[in-house]
């Protein structure tokens, strides 16, 4: 379990994380979402003590990461694509990390096999492709058989096979009862991997919900209406305060009125309706809706600083 409480991180005058609080529970894959620059990486680095919080706390299993006697047994983290020296073999890289905890060499070979690098483990890690480097990072994260796994954008730059591999791995880890926190700036990726979502923007919490709750919450109630008397129907609905747009003749997109109300109004006027479909907002739309302000702010900052 990861608990973030009132976490704030400032770099000079820039506020990367701003009073953030959330909890990540075991047994689920928790997606950590936000636009680029939202503060995801900073938050993750704070969880494992690489960055010091300005105020607030981040704890793992009730303690600061650095206060655990065997930290790699608590948290396995993949934070950078290449956190190794090029001249060293993957196996020796993992061995050096394992030795800090007295983790035996057989475990090093086991995690190499787990990520599919057993054949190339003796080679210089500098010659690895991005995909292989990412696998080595995952191997390092799994070294201590940790209760909590934290992965920052693990599918970035991976080929489709690699993406599928990471998804399966995350689900397996969660099924084993581990706490899994994985960041991404793509809702489409999280939609297929995560059970729960923590969404942040500009360092602040925007939503903490299950995938289902989020779509429900963002069900903005647009209704698609098909009618041979679309022009009359449109006038009627606008008169009742709806916003109506039309992409093609005879088809209306109605915002602001429910499907039931629209049907009742049409019947009252004797207007024919051939189709009446409530449109559920996709997860992607819900995410865009939530983060719009944060993204605009980022863009403004970029324009102002360029």
């Amino acid at each position: 379990m990861i608990e973030i409480q009132d976490l704030t991180k400032r770099y000079g005058r820039t506020v990367a994380v701003d009073g953030l609080s959330f909890t990540v529970r075991p047994g689920h894959v928790t997606g950590f979402l936000g636009p680029n620059g939202a503060g995801k990486s900073t938050t993750m680095r704070t969880i494992v003590g690489l960055d010091h919080p300005t105020t607030g706390t981040a704890t793992v299993a009730g303690r600061r990461y650095r206060d655990h006697a065997a930290p790699l047994r608590e948290v396995g983290a993949l934070l950078e694509a290449r956190a190794f020296q090029k001249a060293r073999s993957a196996r020796n890289h993992l061995l050096a990390l394992a030795q800090t905890h007295g983790i035996p060499e057989v475990r090093v070979d086991a995690v190499l096999a787990m990520v599919g690098l057993e054949e190339v483990g003796h080679r210089r890690a500098g010659g690895y492709s991005l995909g292989m480097a990412q696998r080595l990072g995952v191997a390092a994260a799994l070294l201590g058989d940790p209760a909590v796994v934290v992965l920052d954008e693990p599918v970035n730059g991976l080929d489709p096979d690699g993406v599928l591999w990471v998804r399966t791995l995350l689900k397996t880890l969660a099924t084993q009862g581990r706490t899994v926190l994985v960041s991404s700036h793509l809702m489409s990726e999280m939609a297929v991997t995560a059970d729960r979502l923590v969404i942040i923007g500009r360092g602040r919490l925007l939503a903490e919900a299950s995938i289902g709750e989020l779509t429900a919450r963002a069900g903005v109630g647009r209704v698609l209406v098909r009618s041979p008397q679309a022009t009359d129907l449109r006038e009627l609905l606008v008169g009742r305060g709806a916003t109506v747009t039309s992409a093609e003749p005879g088809v209306l997109q109605v915002d602001g009125l429910g499907a039931g109300t629209i049907a009742d109004l049409a019947v009252g006027r004797g207007l024919a309706v051939h189709e009446l479909t409530p449109q559920h907002a996709s997860l992607e739309q819900a995410y865009m809706e939530l983060t719009r302000d944060a993204v605009q702010y980022q863009d403004q900052q970029r324009v102002m600083s360029s």
């Binding site: 690489l50 930290p71 948290v75 390092a140």
Partner: peptide
């Protein structure tokens, strides 16, 4: 980063 994760 990896070194300090192992020895925070």
């Amino acid at each position: 980063g990896a070194s300090l994760l192992a020895v925070p």
